[in-house]
Amino acid sequence: MTTRHTLADLVVIATLIGIGLYLVVDGGKTAGSTVTISNSDGTILTFSLNEDRFVEIEGRLGRSVIEIADGRVRFVESPCPHHLCMRRGWIHRCGDWIACAPNGILVSISGKTDFDAITP
């Protein structure tokens, strides 16, 4: 016995496969990495890690400047006495962070990560 396949059959099959593939692939994706910069006053700024920019934020001692470039982020300027935050250099991993405790500024990268925390 032979069966005839109509155009409707093909559309149904293609639709099912298409939707299923889309959900499996795209449904598992998470958003791109995000840089969050916050101060002790409750200001919270968020940016994509993939968009280069300089960010200024006021802290307890004065202005900190944070640079986002080439998928990395760092402190370039901060009014703290020892500049430990600046000397930390670039970070790029989700879950990683740099804090300028004297100025009350926290810079962190969020997104898909294999780790729940990173030691200092």
């Binding site: 396949h5 099959i13 099912l16 496969i17 939707i19 299923g20 889309y22 959900l23 499996v24």
Partner: peptide, 16 residues
């Protein structure tokens, strides 16, 4: 081609 219907259904359920 008819075999692709259950494949599509499985993918749909997986995606959901």
């Amino acid at each position: 081609l008819r075999l692709l219907i259950p494949v599509g259904l499985i993918l749909l359920l997986l995606g959901i």
